[in-house]
C-alpha cells in the first residue's frame, strides 16, 4: 500500500516530465529542437500565475474542470494501487472503482465542454462523447476479464490487445485528439479556458496520458503473470516506455474524423471483444 502511494505520487510529479520528453522526442522526429524537458511544468506554473477568467460556461465549467483533475489524479493513484496488487481477483473491487473513475473523468470532460457557451466547445464535447462510447465500454470489459483471473493465456492476450487499443484512445493522442482538433475547432473542449483553469485542464490532459500509459503497462505486466511488489515495480518502470511507444505511433498518424474514428474503433474493438468472449467461452 505504502509503495503504491509513493509510486503514484512520484508518477504524478513525473508525468509532466514524461510529457516534456514526449515533446522533445516529437520535435526530434520533426527535425526541430523542441522545448526543454521541463517545459510542461513551466507551462503549468505560468498558467497558475495568471488571473482567473471565468469562462462563458461559468460555475459548471469551472467545477467540472476542477473535479475532472481530482478524479483523474485519483484514478492515477488507484491504478498504482491496483498495480501493487496485480490484475487479479483480489484487486477486482479496485478495478471496478478505477473504471468508474475513468468514466467519471470522461463525463466531466463532456460536462466541461457542453457547459461552455461556445459552439466549438459543444461540438468538441459531442466528439468526446462519441469517442468515449466507442472505446470505454470495451476497456472496462477487458479489464474485468483480466482481473477475473479466468481464461487461458491466448484469451488474456486478446483482452490485453483490446485494453491497449482502448487505453490509447483514452490518451487523447492523434488520431483521437478530435475533441480538441486545434485547426478545426480552435482547441474545442478547451476553447474558453485560460489562466489557472487552463492550467488545470493541462494537468488533466497530462494525467490522462499517464493513466493511459500506465494502464497499458499494467495489462502487459499482467500478461507476464506478475503480481504484488514486482507488478508495481514493472508497471512503474514500463510506463515511460509505453508513453514513448504511444508517442511514436501518434507521430506517424494524422487526425481522424469523428465518423471514421467511431467506425474504425467499433469495428476493431467489437471484433476483439467477440474474440475475447469466444476464447473465454470456449476456454481457449
Amino acid at each position: 500500500m505504502f509503495h503504491s502511494v509513493v509510486a503514484a505520487l512520484v508518477s504524478l510529479v513525473l508525468a509532466p516530465i514524461y510529457d516534456g520528453i514526449e515533446r522533445k522526442m516529437r520535435a526530434a522526429v520533426h527535425s526541430r529542437i523542441g522545448p526543454p524537458i521541463l517545459q510542461t511544468w513551466y507551462d503549468i506554473i505560468k498558467l497558475f500565475t495568471k488571473e482567473i477568467v471565468v469562462p462563458l460556461g461559468g460555475t459548471w465549467c469551472a467545477l467540472a474542470t476542477v473535479l475532472e483533475l481530482i478524479v483523474l489524479a485519483s484514478s492515477a493513484v488507484l491504478l498504482m494501487f491496483v498495480a501493487g496488487i496485480g490484475l487479479s481477483p483480489e484487486g477486482i473491487f479496485w478495478v471496478i472503482v478505477f473504471t468508474v473513475l475513468v468514466s467519471a473523468a470522461s463525463s466531466l470532460t463532456i460536462l466541461r465542454s457542453v457547459s461552455q457557451n461556445n459552439v466549438y466547445s459543444v461540438v468538441g464535447g459531442f466528439r468526446e462523447f462519441s469517442l468515449v462510447l466507442s472505446a470505454e465500454p470495451f476497456l472496462i470489459m477487458s479489464l474485468f476479464l483480466l482481473a477475473s483471473g479466468a481464461g487461458s493465456q491466448i484469451s488474456r492476450a486478446v483482452a490485453v490487445a483490446t485494453a491497449i487499443v482502448a487505453s490509447y484512445v483514452v490518451s487523447g493522442r492523434v488520431p483521437y485528439d478530435i475533441a480538441e482538433a486545434e485547426p478545426e475547432l480552435s482547441a474545442g473542449v478547451n476553447i474558453e479556458l485560460s489562466g489557472p483553469l487552463l492550467g488545470l485542464a493541462t494537468v488533466s490532459t497530462v494525467f490522462k496520458k499517464f493513466v493511459s500509459a500506465s494502464l497499458t503497462s499494467l495489462v502487459l505486466v499482467s500478461l507476464a503473470g506478475l503480481s504484488g511488489w514486482s507488478s508495481l515495480a514493472a508497471t512503474f518502470l514500463l510506463t515511460p516506455a509505453t508513453w514513448i511507444a504511444q508517442l511514436i505511433l501518434s507521430v506517424m498518424l494524422g487526425r481522424s474524423r469523428v465518423d471514421l474514428a467511431v467506425k474504425f474503433l467499433y469495428t476493431l474493438l467489437f471484433t476483439l471483444s467477440i474474440l475475447t468472449l469466444l476464447s473465454y467461452g470456449l476456454g481457449l
Binding site: V29, H30, S31, D177, A181, R255
Partner: peptide, 12 residues
C-alpha cells in the same frame, strides 16, 4: 498536413 493533424508532414 497540419490541418489533417499530421504535423510530421507539416514540419518536413
Amino acid at each position: 498536413a497540419h490541418l489533417l493533424g499530421y504535423d510530421a508532414g507539416f514540419m518536413h
